[in-house]
Write a protein that binds this DNA or RNA. Structure first.
Length: 293
DNA sequence: CACTTGACCTGTCCGC
DNA sequence: TGCGGACAGGTCAAGT
């Protein structure tokens, strides 16, 4: 899915595009998971409500409404939230997002309509994602929100805290540990591989075998990789699009992710693909050595 | 509690 | 071409 940089890119787009807009309609195409609330709830708390702000926590997007309800969405692997203006709906396409006039399509789960006849589409090919409408004060009580760890890009999150939280997971691999959303928020498979390469740590290293110095370096790499990716509009492998339907370009700057068989930009060795923590994993076998015992 | 694995879905790609 | 299997950016429920 969309990891932190992709969700943040969508958030920034929506913040520009939909704040102040008023919902006048909603159409649910499929999957109760995508919009489990009753339509009577939607009528009461969504229809005629205006968007106040668009927030993000971890990989979750929060669209606050002036009805004191919040649209909470998780894009999981293939979710998209795409805004389409009335002009775009009539086919005023751009090469980068010319499919907008074709929406809704077969992957559209929910379609929202604003009073100016612009639309917001929640698309999700694999149907893992979800949208909920919950009272704003209840957002923090959602199970995931209670358990999720600190935001890596907040200055208040220090290396010391990062190390303390990671040390709870001594016997697992460092990659599994940073993918664990209760340790810290927002790291997914792409930025796990990229930041471990930056810190020269083999993803299968047990946490107990990674020094505090290396963990400090790892947090620095997580932050810098995410900041760069946000600048590039995130990573588009296949499905990911921003709020205007555009692709992100981070993958053309990636050092190891999906670059197996190519040269490591640091030492020139051939990048390898392996499986760690049940996920496809990319490393430089020379820069990232497993500790020997 | 810590840790691992499979399930949730659809689509695509690769080998036979 | 067709078919089976592996795999894809995330999380959660079970299992040990």
């Amino acid at each position: 899915m969309p990891e932190l940089p992709e969700v943040e890119t969508v958030r920034r787009g929506l913040q520009e595009l939909i704040v102040g807009k008023k919902f006048v309609g909603v159409q649910v195409y499929e999957s109760p998971k995508s919009f489990p609330n009753t339509m009577s709830d939607a009528r009461k708390f969504l229809i005629n409500a205006q968007v106040v702000t668009v927030r993000r926590r971890a990989k979750v997007l929060l669209i606050d409404l002036n009805s004191d309800y919040t649209l909470v969405t998780h894009l999981k692997m293939t979710g998209q939230l795409i805004y389409v203006s009335p002009q775009q709906r009539w086919g005023a396409g751009h090469p980068n997002n010319s499919f907008l006039h074709e929406l809704p399509d077969k992957s559209t789960r929910v379609e929202f309509v604003f009073s100016d006849d612009s639309h917001l589409y929640f698309n999700d090919q694999r149907k893992f994602g979800w949208v909920k409408l919950v009272p704003t004060v209840e957002v923090e009580n959602i199970d995931f929100m209670r358990r999720v760890g600190p935001e890596p890009l907040e200055d208040a999150f220090t290396a010391q805290q990062f190390i303390l939280r990671l040390r709870r997971r001594r016997n697992t691999t460092i990659k599994a540990a940073i993918l664990d959303q209760t340790v810290l928020a927002g790291v997914g498979n792409i930025y796990a591989d990229e930041s471990l390469w930056g810190a020269k740590i083999h993803p299968a290293t047990r946490v107990r075998d990674v020094s505090d110095t290396q963990l400090t370096k790892l947090l620095t790499e997580i932050k810098s990789v995410m900041i760069l990716s946000i600048e590039k509009g995130g990573s588009t492998d296949k499905n990911y699009r921003d709020a205007e339907g555009r692709k992100g370009s981070y993958l053309s700057f990636a050092r190891v992710f999906r670059r197996e068989g190519k040269a490591c930009p640091r030492c020139g060795s051939v990048i390898e693909k392996l499986r760690v923590a049940g996920r496809g994993t990319h490393i430089c076998p020379v820069c990232q050595k497993l500790p020997v015992h």
